[in-house]
Structures are given as C-alpha cells and as structure tokens.
Amino acid sequence: MKILINFFEKVGYSITSRINRLGMATRLFFLIIISSGESFRRFHLTMKEIYFTGVMSLVIIIVSAFFVGMVLGLQGYYTLQKYGSSEAIGVLVALALVRELGPVVTALLFAGRAGTAITAEIGLMKATEQLSAMEMMAVNPVGRIIAPRFWAGVIAMPILASIFSMVGILGGYVVAVIVIGVDEGAFWSQMQANVDFRYDIVNGVIKSLVFGVACTIIALFEGFDAPPTAEGVSRATTRTVVTSSLVILGLDFILTSFMLGG
C-alpha cells in the first residue's frame, strides 16, 4: 500500500513540477517579448549573438548537410532503381530535405551546438552573480542578456535550415548525378516539377522558425533556472539537449500533420 502511494506521489510530483517549469518557461517567454525593445534598438547586441549561435554553427551544419544529402542520394537511388524510376531521386532528396530533414536535423544540431552553449553561459553568469550584478546596476538582465540571445536564435535557425536544405540537395546531386550518373536534366526537372514553393519550402521555413523559438527558449530557460553550482549547470546543459530534442520531434509531428491536413 505504502509503495503504491509512494509511486503515485512520485508520478504526481514529476507532473506538477513539469507543469510548473512549463509555466515558468512561458513566463520567461513573455518577459523576453516585453523587454525586447533593446535587442532591436541596439541591434549590435543581437548581432553578436547571431555570430555566436549562427556563424559558429555554420561549419557543422554544412558538413552534416552534405553527408545527409549524399546518404539520401545513395539510399534513394538503390531503392528507386528497383522500380525503374531512378530519375525521381531529385524529388526524393529535395522533398525529404526541404520538408523534414532540413528543419529537424538543423534544430537538433542547433540544440547540441548553440543551445548547450547558451545554457552553460547563462548558468555560469548566474552562478558567478553576473546577472545579479547587472540587476544591481539597474540593468534588466532579461533585456540585456536573454532577449538578444533569443532573437539571435530565432533569426539564425531558418537561415541555417535553408543552408542545410540547399547544401543537402547539392550533396544528393553530387552522388546521384556525378558519382552514379543519373541524368542531370531529369534530376533537376523532376525536382522542380514536384517541389512546391508555398507548400514545401515555405512550410519548411515556418517549421524551422517554430523550432528556433522552442530551442532557444528551452536553452535560455534551463540556463536561467539552473542551480548556481557546477553540477547544476552541467545538469541543465544535459536537460537542454534532451528537452530540445523531444520538443523538436514532437512539434515536428504536430506541425506536419497540420501542414499536410491543411
């Protein structure tokens, strides 16, 4: 009996604490929105963060995109070839990247590369009382530190996702056309005939925007919420990756079902 009660207590506690954290993250989100003026009035603050989140993630995004594209080209070719429609490889690579892999893999890599960096940075600033010191200098840390990072993430993510898709398609092109020898004209024309700007490309960009908001908020919140100890910051960093990944995949399903349904 006691074990049962303990079990329910644990379940209840983990649910309420999660809901509590969700509420606090939402509150942080609104705080960021209302104190965002400075991020745009003094755009160089945001610019600096775009450099750290976007430009610094460029290499990992380009390299992974190229490999993902090449693998898609190879795998797609061997499957499509069985049905005698290897020219459709262009469509397969492009749709897979533009609709799904571009936004999703970019967001996952972003969470690992930039998200963890944000969490660790904010967590350490908190642990070393830098945020407190800023408050005492009558500077709102949400406006000065948090908001520019948020907007930088939201701006950088769609750009990174577009780069990912484009580089991935080039990777697929290299394998399919240059290595395997699929007809170049068929590769591009099939792609163009079947990829719709509004329904495929724009939807992909919308997805990456949503992921950008989610990833950055999670990273910022975990950093802001981390206990000010070495252990607390390291745990928060781990949680950033885990939570971001789950949220990205869950949101992806929801968004996709909306987009295909509507």
Binding site: E121, M125, E129, Q130, S132
Partner: peptide
Amino acid sequence: FQHGALFTD
C-alpha cells in the same frame, strides 16, 4: 560582489 562578478565576456 563577493567574487567581483565581472562580465567574463
């Protein structure tokens, strides 16, 4: 602050 709390960046 106790340990200065300088902005490390």
